[in-house]
């Protein structure tokens, strides 16, 4: 490493120690000791800054934070799934002794022995780490793929196909709330009948044109091509809306992190 790298690291270590001291001295909570609380808040702040430093360019601090995140999150999801699924759903069905050990009530049900099947398949899956009998893990993989295919087939046919088509069949000629003729009351009131009808037309034609765009077995020319063109516009509006929401979401997260830095760490915002 270069001499400048050592200097930067020494400065960061010094800043960390100073921040730790001040945060510990000003901690008023009772959840943990001031020393631990000061260390944790400082660590969270420095890790936040380490990630943000990537905006400038890739650097050792970012790499450190990135590798830390990989290790922590891999273990986090392993532990979460172990305690919620294995201890919460499996052990209470297959072992009285282990249920007692983990403080879970034993569920004495007639078909409990079937739960050994996923355990065996899970063990087969772990054999993938072996180069000689790794192929046996395909049996577990086949079970996962078969279950996903079987469940998705019905679920998506119902929710993403039939339900969506059914919801698109909306009334295209709506009367006013008090039963008066629609033509006598054409306003652009957001809650008025004209806008409601306009929305229904946009949904009905928009879905048809959108689907037409995705139909690639026929050349997009003539009337079909014009419908496809409208479909592209509808999709562009959808992508624009999604983009707008994504921007807002990311900015909100950034504001959250900056609030943490300025309020919880530096105490500049009351």
């Amino acid at each position: 490493m270069k001499r400048s790298t050592y200097i930067v690291m020494a400065v960061m270590a010094l800043l960390f120690a100073v921040s730790w001291y001040f945060k510990a001295a000003t901690y008023h909570g009772n959840v943990m000791s001031p020393l631990v609380a000061g260390f944790m808040i400082t660590l969270a702040a420095f890790l936040t800054l380490a990630i943000i430093s990537f905006v400038y360019q890739d650097n050792p601090f970012y790499k450190f934070a990135e590798h830390l995140f990989v290790g922590i999150s891999a273990a986090f999801w392993m532990c979460q799934s172990f305690w919620s699924t294995i201890v919460g759903n499996l052990i209470p069905r297959i072992s009285t002794g282990l249920s007692k050990y983990f403080g879970q009530p034993y569920r004495d049900e007639p078909w409990n022995f079937v739960y050994w099947l996923p355990v065996i398949l899970g063990i087969l899956l772990l054999l993938r780490l072996s180069s000689k009998i790794g192929w046996v893990s395909r049996w577990a993989l086949a079970f996962i793929v078969g279950t996903t295919a079987g469940l998705s087939f019905i679920r998506y046919l119902r929710s993403d196909f039939m339900e969506q088509i059914s919801s698109t069949m909306v009334p295209l000629l709506a009367a006013g709330n008090s039963g008066e003729s629609l033509l006598s009351n054409i306003t652009l009131s957001a809650t008025g009948p004209f806008v409601a009808m306009l929305t229904n037309w946009v949904i009905f034609l928009g879905v048809i044109c959108g689907i037409v765009y995705f139909f690639f077995s026929k050349e997009h020319t003539g009337l079909f091509g014009r419908a496809s063109r409208v479909g592209i516009w509808i999709l562009m509006i959808t992508f624009g809306a999604a983009f707008g929401y994504t921007v807002m979401g990311r900015i909100t997260l950034l504001v959250g992190r900056l609030t943490f830095l300025y309020k919880d760490w530096l105490g500049l915002i009351s």
């Binding site: 172990f82 699924t85 294995i86 759903n89 996923p118 899970g122 772990l126 577990a140 996962i144």
Partner: peptide, 13 residues
């Protein structure tokens, strides 16, 4: 549920 149990083994893998 069986799927979730095998998925835990996949996490360990």
């Amino acid at each position: 549920v069986y799927f979730d149990i095998i998925a835990v083994f996949a996490f360990f893998l």
